[in-house]
Amino acid sequence: MTKKGRAIVDVSKLPEFAFGNRGLMWWGVIGFLAIEGTMLVICFVSYFYLRDRVTDWPPPPTPLPDLLVPTVGLALLLLSVVPMHLACRAAKKLDARKTILWLVVTDIVGLAFIGVRVLAFYALNVSWDTNAYGSVVWTIIVIHTFHLVSEVIETIVITVLLAVGHTEPKYLVDATDNALYWYFIVLIWVPCYAIIFVTPRLL
């Protein structure tokens, strides 16, 4: 098969890990982001489709959702980007200690936000089985919460992994790819929030 004496492309000196889109995991994460993003976008489209079918939104006598708690939550969630970004930066410098530190901060903000999220359910002022409006807002918020909770758990697992001493560069790369997911969860919440809590006031 291989013939001695052939020209050779020597790859033995190439780096054995790489951040961002040079690594494989990044592509996997992007792939799943695309899938989940599409799913949420389809939920949004369904929301507007259902909205279009009736004259009043939310359909009476359903009251408008509250705004305060979700807005506080939104701020908190946006805030969590900062420690995550710092963790990411430390990871890229292969600074395990700082990475762990900032991840812990992020975990705490994430857990706090989950607490606020529970309150946000009450702020909807409608049940999923009241009408189609209730169904769609509940579904959007539950899907997002599901992703949020899994992401917080994953971040905690990575924090623990690094903390117990698995600081091979590979896991630092994983931490940065995981950050990508975190950003996604945060950013996609902005339209979710707008649709669930603001749109009924406008349309």
Binding site: L50, R53, P59, W128, D129, Y133, S135, W138
Partner: peptide, 14 residues
């Protein structure tokens, strides 16, 4: 399973 109304024309679904 949980009684949502996405496809139920009577409750605003379609």
């Amino acid at each position: 399973l949980v009684g949502t109304h996405f496809y139920n024309a009577a409750e605003g679904g379609d």
